[in-house]
Amino acid sequence: MIEVSNLQKYFGYLPAVDGVSFSVEPGEILGFLGPNGAGKSTTMKMITGFITPTMGKISVCGCDIETDKLSAQRKMGYLPEGTPAYEEMTPRGFLGFIAEIRGYSKSERASRIGSVTETMGLESVLDQRIETLSKGFKRRVGLAQAIIHDPKVLVLDEPTDGLDPNQKYQVREMIRGLSRDKIVIISTHILEEVTAVCTRAVILASGKIVSDCTPRELEEKSRYHQAVTLIFKSPEDIPAVVTKIQNLELVKSVEENGLELLVVPEYKDGSLLPHISSLVREEGWQLAGLFQEKGRLDEVFRSITEEGSHAGH
């Protein structure tokens, strides 16, 4: 369990993190979201003990990061932003170094390296210098280093940043594949990632938590939640269609985009889709698609973080 209470970090007079409190239970995959400079990385750096908070307390599995830093650090695996590694080393040497610091004996080290090598698919590059590896492999080396001691807490700062879609998928699969009793904290500015891997999303803006809920709840906050999209096959008389739909009681607004109509409901109770589909049948509209939106995270994100940063000023 991680408990963070009233965490603050000032750089000069500038608050980077300003009164952040939250706690994470084992089994949770917590996603830190927020615009650049919101304090995600700074919070992670304080949790992992790299920088000292100006104020506030952090405890990781019962170990206070200030008074018992080493015990806390033993329980954590950390992938810093940008995956730093000793580039002149080979993954084998690098992982060996980390494992040695993590306190494994020589024979244990070999088996630990073997197992993370397999999980991360590093066999083919194990004896190549890290500086010669591709970005994807470097990231995997960084992740391997973070999980080599099978930590209870895993802190990953932008683990998929700069990877191609396949590599992103692999990293997410790896995170999801971790055992259920771990705490995982990841930071990201990719919103789809939150729905893809996280069980909880904390949004930071200007150093403050502005939202803390499940990704699902986040989607529900969207004004497009349960909105209905209609895609027409041919350019019909769209204005007439729009008027007809707008005449429905449940409809709040209709947004037009070429052959696509986005119908925003008045109430988010799922009652709009049946109405729309019966209207489509009655009118005999030829549609290429008709579906219900889950909600648009980017829109929620923008509205929450902008509100938050206005409140901060």
Binding site: R74, P80, Y86, G103, Q145
Partner: peptide
């Protein structure tokens, strides 16, 4: 950036 790695190891 390896300093961050080094300083967050036990």
């Amino acid at each position: 950036g390896t300093i961050e790695l080094l300083m967050t190891l036990p």
